[in-house]
């Protein structure tokens, strides 16, 4: 923060010259002078209220557009992680495994069950990563896609790359990050983000198994 010595000098010399002239007769200005705290609080309240009102107006205009764009993105993402999806609908459950936010059931044109698109929210380095995991009814991962994240640019954001996300395809319950054969290799320099994505994928598998095999498969 940069503060200059001469800061606000002109404003200080004649505070509220504009308001004062109009309101002197009503005795409003002496009142404000006597209670500077009310003056300051009132001015800040008025300003924040006005800014909030304007932002609210803009929000009512932009929110539907943003929601529609997000729905379109979600649709594309669902058919990306569960290939061949023609239609999908949300599933309800009393409780999903940890990190799972929502589950969508994906069917092809004939109505046959292809698998589940599970939205999970593991914690990465810079906050929650919003992840979409495609899992077939046997609990095998068919695709992973990152919907939204706030990871460190050029480090954590490298997890949003097909070459990394495709490493999870074909994995099932019990897979782990690591150097061994059959393990998923993490991205160097982005261990926290990689681990978070792996945790989200594991939660997606757990959710799919919960649906197809009933209780007791929480991973």
């Amino acid at each position: 923060m940069s503060e200059r010595e001469t800061a606000g000098a002109p404003a200080a010399a004649e505070p509220n010259a504009g308001i004062g002239a109009a309101q002197r007769e009503t005795g409003f200005e002496p009142f404000l002078k006597k209670h500077p705290i009310l003056h300051m609080a009132g001015a800040l309240l008025a300003l924040t209220a006005f800014v909030a009102f304007l932002l609210g107006l803009i929000h009512t205009q932009t929110a539907p557009v943003i929601a529609r764009l997000q729905a379109e993105t979600l649709e594309a993402a669902v058919s990306g992680v569960v290939p061949g999806t023609a239609s999908f609908q949300p599933l309800q459950a009393d409780s999903w495994p940890k990190l799972v936010k929502s589950v969508r059931e994906c069917r092809d044109e004939t109505g046959a069950l292809l698998g589940f698109a599970v939205e999970t929210a593991p914690s990465g380095f810079g906050g929650t990563i919003s992840l979409l995991v495609g899992v077939d009814p046997e609990g095998v991962v068919t695709g992973v896609s990152i919907l939204d994240m706030k990871e460190t640019p050029n480090l954590g954001t490298k997890t949003d790359d097909p070459s990394f996300l495709s490493r999870f395809v074909g994995k099932s319950v019990g897979f782990k990050l690591g150097p061994g054969a059959g393990d998923v290799q993490a991205i160097s320099g982005a261990t926290v983000s990689s681990t978070a994505v792996a945790g989200g994928v594991a939660a997606g598998i757990a959710a799919a198994l919960q649906i197809t095999q009933g209780e007791g498969t929480v991973g």
Binding site: M1, E3, G8, A11, M40, A43, V51
Partner: peptide, 20 residues
């Protein structure tokens, strides 16, 4: 708004405007 903003809270007011 420079004459309307009380001097002591000017930084807070600026931040509100910028954040808006």
């Amino acid at each position: 708004l420079r004459r309307l903003i009380p001097e002591k809270i000017r930084i807070a007011a600026y931040v509100v405007i910028i954040a808006g």
